[in-house]
Computed example of a mutant assay.
Amino acid sequence: MAFRNTPDSFGLITRVLHWAMALLVLTMLALGLRISDMEPGLSNLWLYGLHKTLGFGVLTLIVLRLGWHLISPVPKPIGPPGLAQLAARAGHILFYVLLIAIPISGWAGSSATGIDVMIADRWVVQPIAEVSEAGEAFWFSVHEVLTKILIGLIIVHMLAALKRELAGDGTLRRMIRGRV
């Protein structure tokens, strides 16, 4: 079992990063949707802290994944070049942009509240936005819009992977097993 990618297969590290991020992002979305309907209070404040901690986890993993792809480039796409490959490439780039921008906008919105932003209820991180109600509203609006775009992109990504698998091209198998 290869740790690195080859021109035709995904290595173990890429696959673990992919599926760990998928699980973490889906967990974050579920948690984010849950807390967006809550009024913050002492009994549920820990959920907000958990969301922030996991958000920093997403940000860390996406930076690691980008670094890993510099060391171990992804395999070439399956199938002939064309519009589908171009759309898939654009979708993957959008994933990277969103998975960086969403945690940063949440961090900025949390910073603008004036309340310490903490990881695991233990480490305070530097604020990245001035304390202001207008800044808080702006950054959390950006966070919400980008998250809705991410949800749509995830749905399209999953449907495209399923379509390709049903067509028998092996793309999904390659992300699960590493090779077709």
Rank of each mutant, 00 (worst) to 15 (best):
M1I: 12
M1G: 13
P7K: 10
P7S: 11
S9P: 02
S9M: 04
L12F: 02
R15A: 00
V16T: 12
V16D: 02
H18I: 05
H18G: 07
W19R: 09
A20V: 14
A20M: 10
L23V: 11
V25F: 03
L26M: 06
L26P: 10
M28D: 02
L29T: 14
L31D: 04
L31N: 08
G32P: 04
I35V: 11
S36A: 14
P40F: 08
L42Q: 15
L42Y: 15
S43L: 10
L45K: 13
W46S: 15
L47K: 13
Y48L: 13
G49V: 09
K52P: 15
L54K: 09
G55C: 03
G55Y: 02
F56D: 01
R65W: 05
W68N: 00
H69S: 12
I71E: 01
S72L: 00
P77Y: 01
P77F: 02
I78Y: 02
P80M: 15
P80F: 13
L83V: 11
Q85E: 07
A90S: 07
A90H: 07
H92C: 05
H92F: 04
H92T: 07
H92L: 05
H92A: 03
I93R: 08
I93D: 06
I93M: 07
F95K: 03
S105C: 07
A108G: 04
G109W: 01
G109F: 05
A112F: 06
T113S: 03
V117T: 13
A120I: 15
R122L: 15
V125Q: 01
V125E: 01
E130K: 12
E130H: 12
E133S: 11
E133Y: 09
A134R: 05
G135K: 10
E136S: 09
A137F: 15
W139V: 00
F140E: 05
V142T: 05
E144S: 14
T147P: 03
T147A: 08
K148H: 15
I149A: 03
I149C: 04
L150D: 00
L150P: 08
I151G: 01
I155H: 04
H157T: 03
L159V: 15
K163M: 13
E165G: 10
D169I: 11
L172A: 10
R174E: 06
R177M: 14
V180H: 13
